[in-house]
């Protein structure tokens, strides 16, 4: 079992191992969050399998971003539980601890470090050393440089390596942020609206990349673009008013009368 896990996830030894004995990497159970009386999440249940590519859709205010905030430690729920694998209780960890445990997040608005170069953005995100004293003396070794070069090629920014990230186009920033996510080498990627503002070609490449990542990692994508969702998703979860309305293949979900009502009724 242990051997297959290793092979499956291709983990670095620096991160704690996630116990995925039941083939489920993320458990969100009965989670509720209220803001000033508004129920952003209402007894939400969500299970993500190892290597799965899951799309989450839902109208505005359905709780998609709040759900990501709970998983990454930004928001603490009023009740419920969230576990990463069998053993890591996400509700007891801080944001950096969750990131180090192996959950990476790409934000809706691209948030790269605008005054650093593309290369430095990737270097910052790279899994590994996080202590100030060690960072003071740390130098990139050959393997790490290769890894950055590889990601630069993957995200198509190899020729912009030394450009200041703030000078990139919107689509390039989205790609750089995906690259930073890859450098973190997470087991679970949470990706919020990855193709917003992208050209059709860029969207297509993003779809290819996300599909290629699934299998070795688990990927959760929040997206409004239904064509994009159709092109990548095997399983789609529909959120509505803070809980799951429907779950299944894209065709099943689109044929579901309650989903149609929620989307078309507005």
């Amino acid at each position: 079992m242990r051997g297959t896990q290793r092979q499956y996830l291709g983990r670095r030894s620096s991160q704690p191992k996630v116990d995925i004995a039941n083939n489920i990497i993320l458990y969100v159970e009965d989670v509720s969050v209220s803001f000033d009386g508004f129920r952003a999440l209402n007894h939400l249940n969500l299970y993500i399998e190892v290597g799965e590519l899951r799309c989450i859709i839902g109208p505005n205010g359905a709780g998609k971003t709040t759900m990501m905030d709970v998983i990454t430690g930004k928001t603490r729920p009023d009740s419920g539980s969230a576990w990463f694998g069998q053993t890591i209780d996400l509700l007891t960890l801080s944001e950096p601890e969750i990131a180090q445990a192996g959950i990476g997040r790409k934000f809706q608005k691209p948030t790269v470090f605008p005054n650093h170069t593309v290369f430095e953005n990737l270097e910052l995100a790279m899994a590994g050393t996080r202590s100030p004293w060690r960072l003071l003396v740390a130098r990139l070794d050959g393997e790490q440089l290769d890894r950055i070069a590889e990601v630069l090629r993957t995200i198509g920014l190899a020729d912009r390596r030394d450009a200041i990230a703030g000078s990139l186009s919107h689509g390039q920033k989205q790609w750089l942020e995906i690259g930073m996510l890859l450098m973190q080498d997470p087991q679970l990627l949470l990706v919020d609206e990855p193709v917003a503002g992208m050209t059709p070609q860029e969207t297509e490449r993003t779809a290819e990349l996300l599909v290629s990542l699934a299998g070795t990692r688990s990927v959760v994508v929040v997206e409004h673009d239904m064509d994009f969702v159709r092109s990548i998703a095997r399983t789609v979860t529909v959120l509505h008013e803070g809980s799951v309305l429907a779950e299944g293949s894209i065709d099943d979900v689109q044929a579901n009368p309650r989903v149609v009502e929620v989307y078309l009724g507005e």
Partner: peptide
């Protein structure tokens, strides 16, 4: 140093720095 880059990252986008695993 690499610490210097993290220091400037904290200045420019503090919460982003937290989400890539820095305390």
């Amino acid at each position: 140093s690499r610490l210097g880059r993290v220091i400037e990252a904290v200045r420019d986008a503090e919460s982003r720095t937290r989400f890539i695993g820095y305390r």
